[in-house]
Amino acid sequence: MESRLKALEEKAKSEIKKADSIKVLEKARIHYLGKKGELTKILRGMGAIDAAERPRVGRIANTVRENIENELDKAMDAIKGKELENRLQLETIDVTMPGKEIKIGRRHPLTQTMDDLKDIFISMGFEVAEGPEIETVYYNFDALNAPKNHPSRDMSDTFYINENVILRTQTSPVQVRVMEKTKPPIRIVSLGRCFRNDTPDATHSPMFYQIEGLVVDRGITMGDLKGTLEVFAKHFFGPDTLIKFRPHNFPFTEPSAEVDATCFKCGGKGCGVCKGSGWMEVLGSGMVHPNVLRNCGIDPEIYSGFAFGMGIDRLAMQKYGIDDIRLLFENDMRFIDQF
């Protein structure tokens, strides 16, 4: 019996060695170790063995079983490894082929510029205010101290709906609306569409965007205007930006200033963008005119304030190097996709 067991082990081992698939191995397992398998068949003869011998033969039988099982497991692992290897081989792809396109939409470059502006001013404690695009002559001109015969009121400059109602030519009327309703301290910016009777060309558009800023409180100085705009310019145009205040005239501010910033392109050395001057005119500003404060029910003896305004289209064009304002309103997808 002992020799039969040994012979079985050898036979099984050699068969396992030859196996080349999991299926064959499973068959071998059943053939040798299954309930009706070869090993069981041999062990059925145990009854005929001397009782004293049984434990020893039993141990041998167990060893044979274990050996065959080990051999089966080893072969199984080897074949599984090989099969996996084959599968992976077959599944090889060309990883250099392009990925599946996921199209993300873009915000309009003007919106992106407005988002940047809002972020900067909100971080400086400004609240974003809104006002109507169709405005009264009172809010757009009268309350802002614009002389009755100011040319900007002409039909050649302003779109009229009737003699009292126009398309706003600036975001400044929002100042007045806010001051009428709010007590100082006031610190707002307002962004939006404005309209002027200009035939479209590379630098003009009958519709454009402006940002307006207003601060009113006790003790606000022209130095504060300078400081605030300096911080803004460094945030928006870059930390090395310098700004320059030049006297100017606006009806709603006194003193008034135009502000130049060092050219974002050349940093002030002079280039094509700044026409060699190193500077670019970026905004108009000034101390709120006492008449404007008074028109809004704020006592200029107690409060003072400053205001500033910028063309957002021009900022966006400078920032992104866009050379024709009409591109902003043509909305060619190939244009917007770039931002």
Binding site: I122, E127, P185, R187, G227, F245
Partner: peptide
């Protein structure tokens, strides 16, 4: 004119 930051009331910005 020396640039300064507005003194006085602190305001919270927002939209």
């Amino acid at each position: 004119i020396p640039p300064t930051m507005a003194k006085g009331n602190i305001t919270v910005g927002g939209k």
